[in-house]
Write a protein that binds this DNA or RNA. Sequence first.
DNA 1: ACAAAAAACTTTCTAATGGTAAGTTTTTCG
DNA 2: CGAAAAACTTACCATTAGAAAGTTTTTTGT
Lengths: 227, 227
Amino acid sequence: MRSTSIRSIRRAELSRAAFEAVVRYGLRGTTLDKVGEIAGVSKGVVLHHFKDKSALLEAVFRRSNSLLSESAVELYRYAETPYERFWAIIVANFCDTIFNRRVCQAWVSLISEVPHNDQCQRIQYACNERIRTNLEHELKHFLSPDDTKRTARHLGMLIDGVWVRAGLMPDRLTSAEAISEMEYAVAKLLPYDEISATKHKEARKKIETIADIALGSKAFKEKSLQV
Amino acid sequence: MRSTSIRSIRRAELSRAAFEAVVRYGLRGTTLDKVGEIAGVSKGVVLHHFKDKSALLEAVFRRSNSLLSESAVELYRYAETPYERFWAIIVANFCDTIFNRRVCQAWVSLISEVPHNDQCQRIQYACNERIRTNLEHELKHFLSPDDTKRTARHLGMLIDGVWVRAGLMPDRLTSAEAISEMEYAVAKLLPYDEISATKHKEARKKIETIADIALGSKAFKEKSLQV
DNA sequence: ACAAAAAACTTTCTAATGGTAAGTTTTTCG
DNA sequence: CGAAAAACTTACCATTAGAAAGTTTTTTGT
């Protein structure tokens, strides 16, 4: 198993280097030489581990998305009520660790690979579906079946929109601002009387606190993109 | 003036060819040779009219965005009430002429140029600001000043989200579905009693009808990307 | 422990690409 | 008409993605 291990370590190193290259130089400025340079190896090594540039970018894309997914899973472990699980999904998408200018810009660059790369398209589709079904699972505690579906789809699109903005706009969009944007939507889309408002707020606070600790921890970051 | 005219005609031809290349081959597959081939000229001509590839892509980007803007202006001319003007902005973003798989995929490809291209960033910023202030201008008839600002920003992000989805997801997102998505948001975000619901519906219908006629017309399409 | 096999890595080469520069034709205009 | 400017072409160069072949290291079967 050592051999597979070496391979997967190298692949991880290289896809991290490629991510860094996309952050620094943009997608069009990311060359195999630069990726190699960042990783401290020659271009040949990159192509030895990835069949071509598309495969490399696909790995970067998968890596970013799986980090997102891991954050959600991690926060889910501590969420005990539908309110908390709901906010776990939201906060996972916008916690400091992964929601920042560099990552959002890189994401914006990388999605341009999706339309002409079936593998990337599958990853993106799976990721969206996961968020959607997770949201549905919690929303059905608050909404009718029909509204559950609509609202889940809707929030999914809104999340994408916030990410795009954060990546495209010159002024930085903070984690807190993004979450507050979602909170605004929730207040309008879900039943929101005084009682549920309090519950939402408490749930969000708890999850945010956990996110700071659990996702900011060294152990978790080691698995991450390490930005 | 003939000389500037020739130049601007060529530039328009070439940026249209470049757009077509992005649609067909994706951003990374778009080469100057292919752009030239589609336009029926040699690569040299492309570089004679655009200083480099970035400048070409910037022109494509500007072109897409100005088409959007022209649609909005065109629909605005027929809108007579705040309801209608509001829906003019929304419908302009999602009418068949410009909201379709090809264009959305191309847009998703092109925005990857934004983070590392100041000119593109300025265009994108201006476009977002225009939509935001236009929305604010109409929303203030329905909402408090504070809610107006928030909702305008919110709807702007949602529009981006819908566009991204349409470009990224394998299954086609129709114009009607996109508008219905916005309608759902409006029903939740704006005051929406029976009276205003009717007014919104009527306004939307009127504007949609006008959009089919005015934006589908040959005269208008000639100025457009012609997809 | 050791030879064979496999995997990791390097080097070299090629075609395609973005971009430059010099040259040729066409258009414009005094 | 003739000079100047613009449109276009061609030839060229450096960089890039990728293939191919060779070398070193690691793994594995005996």
